[in-house]
Design a binder for these strands. Structure first.
Lengths: 355, 355
DNA sequence: ATGAAAGCGCTAACAC
DNA sequence: GTGTTAGCGCTTTCAT
């Protein structure tokens, strides 16, 4: 490596200082600088030398170049994460706990954003891979079906570990961590059953036949296990938006044999109902009980009983999976289903006695 | 960190293909491959060659190494962004629009997370700088005061452009884009004034004397400009949490000369009041009008009149700033204040006639 | 149109 | 404990 002798001065102004410069100023070799900077213990560097190097670093305003560093030793110590939505606390909590765990091992989470299932999502995974992240974490989503397998196999080919969050649909291809949603929905149903409800309707969705399928089959399972003779699902037969679902809920409540409670696969499905029917046409929980899903902000604000998915656990376990596979790429595939917890608030009460 | 030497041969097999491999398979030189991959036009590559190269790329499953690429030509085409909160739609919208604009110029947004004002925030800026992002975007925050200047000067020294979002407090040091909050608060006051309110109290905060200072001085300004003879600020003299603020609001409403309306510097300040007082002890807007700030999710759900900050504009303009400075590092400092918009919903109405 | 070769900044094996 | 040096994968003059 030829150190410019003549142009040196000119270049000095723009070029950022590198290990070599530090070495020269400190009067040591590159290697020594590198060892000091990386706290290498193998060849123990004398305190005096260390001090001189550090001083040179300070003086020059040297900042190490991660690009070169990673290029050289083949590891970036970063984990890429493709984020779809940044709008809710669910994702926020997962991110935080995931990051915390990764931090402990010196890994840094790097996010990029892309709507789930969009072409951009696949692009962003490419991007992360090109940046040689050591692993990729991705949120599964209803729309993912089409696109996921494509980049999933891409990652496999390159030996980059990945974990899928929030769904275990791809658990046969990749480490996955999600919630035990069948049980979660069962808990919701059991809670209402125990309060005395026997006509519990589900606010569902047919947007994707396999959207949050566990939550929906949890409903059927509960019906069966609890020996209930009432199975009404709003929005499972045709595509409906939340406004239409609310109207249908109201229609049901005004009809014969009305449900005394609703469960849903997502807190926000109730949003419109809460905004425009609850408290005016129907009182909650006097006229109808409501159990949401997700324990998201809305359920806290609206004091909704809801099934919590424990995002803090999801994030932590996802990090754990990544770390474990990074350590041992050949470990068997892992599929984790975090147990949910029912958070009881004031949207549930015993049903009104039949009038 | 000792890399096992014996396994070297094993590893060899896993080595990812590089330009050189591609070149060999395609029967051309490295250079040619590089030109093809970068769509170079200077030396026009023949279609036949291009095709062969692409075929080789496909066959080998070659993926370019951004690390090496960036190292070589000194640009990463990434913009780093330090995110504090991922929990609300405000940030989400900014991110999306900012990304969209950056995309157009081929820049990619890279996020890292750190609580505002935390030691980690400074660390993350270092991290981004070490990764040689071409620019940094950061959210200002009440706590930032202490830490910001430190890494701000660090960036300046290295010639890495940055823009501060959501505050213009550091506008003398860095391109900044925020909202015109003085005017925003004035709009809120004017709206209430026009409805007939003359006793409007502010729910404030003394946590940091310069926290969202514009919104607070906007209140004083409005009082003066509108010739109002009532200036009551909850929580401006001592530190209070939202629960205490709600209690204080209730106390005020029950007292003599009660305010007929409240304005605040943040929608969520009203959260507790809405959950526990509104609709029970006080009706909104019959007994009291409420104007929030931020037009955040809460205000939409609770049908709160609120001052919107137009995050989509903030994000776009932030990207614009970065792009402009990237193009011309010497352009004069820019300070943009996005005009707010009052979103009227059903939490505001004329005050009750004095009883 | 294509190829040879000099870096970019850093790590780490190997010699001293 | 310190220095030498060969890569890491790619870009990019400068010849050819």
């Amino acid at each position: 490596m030829a150190v410019d002798t003549g142009v040196e001065v000119e270049k000095r102004k723009k070029r950022k200082p590198n290990v070599f410069d530090v070495a020269r100023v400190a009067g040591v070799s590159q290697t020594t600088v590198s060892f000091v900077l990386n706290g290498s213990t193998t060849p123990r560097i004398s305190d005096a030398t260390t001090k001189r190097v550090l001083a040179a670093v300070e003086q020059l305003g040297y900042r190490r170049n991660t690009l070169a560093r990673s290029l050289a030793h083949g590891k970036t110590m970063t984990v890429g994460m493709v984020l779809s939505s940044l709008d809710d606390d669910f994702h926020g909590v997962i991110l935080r706990t995931c990051q915390e765990r990764l931090d402990e091992q010196g890994y840094q989470l790097l996010y990029v954003q892309a709507a789930s299932g969009s072409a951009r999502e696949a692009l962003m995974v490419q991007f992360l891979l090109e940046h040689r992240v050591d692993a990729v974490i991705c949120f599964a989503h209803e729309y993912s079906t089409y696109i996921v397998p494509e980049w999933l196999s891409g990652m496999r080919d390159e030996g980059v570990p990945g974990v899928m969050i929030d769904s275990t649909r791809f658990a046969s291809m990749i480490d996955s961590v999600g919630s035990d949603d069948i049980d979660g929905m069962y808990k919701a149903m059991k809670h209402l059953y125990d309060l005395g409800h026997r006509r519990i309707a589900l606010v569902s969705d047919n947007w994707q036949p396999d959207l949050v399928p566990d939550r929906i089959s949890g409903y059927d399972l509960a019906i069966e296990r609890l020996g209930i003779d009432y199975n009404v699902q709003v929005g499972s037969d045709r595509r409906m938006n939340d406004i239409e679902k609310s109207a249908e809920m109201a229609r049901l409540l005004d009809g014969p044999e009305p449900p005394t409670a609703f469960v849903t696969y997502n807190d926000y499905t109730f949003e419109y109902f809460l905004m425009n029917y609850a408290g005016t046409r129907f009182r909650v929980p006097e006229d109808v009980s409501l159990v949401g899903y997700g324990n998201l902000y809305l359920s806290r604000f609206a004091k909704l009983t809801s099934v919590g998915q424990r995002p803090e656990e999801i994030g932590r376990v996802a990090a754990e999976c990544v770390l474990a596979r990074l350590k041992n790429p050949d470990r068997p595939l892992r599929k984790v289903e975090i147990e949910t917890e029912l958070v009881v608030r004031s949207s549930t009460a015993p049903p009104r006695p039949v009038s």
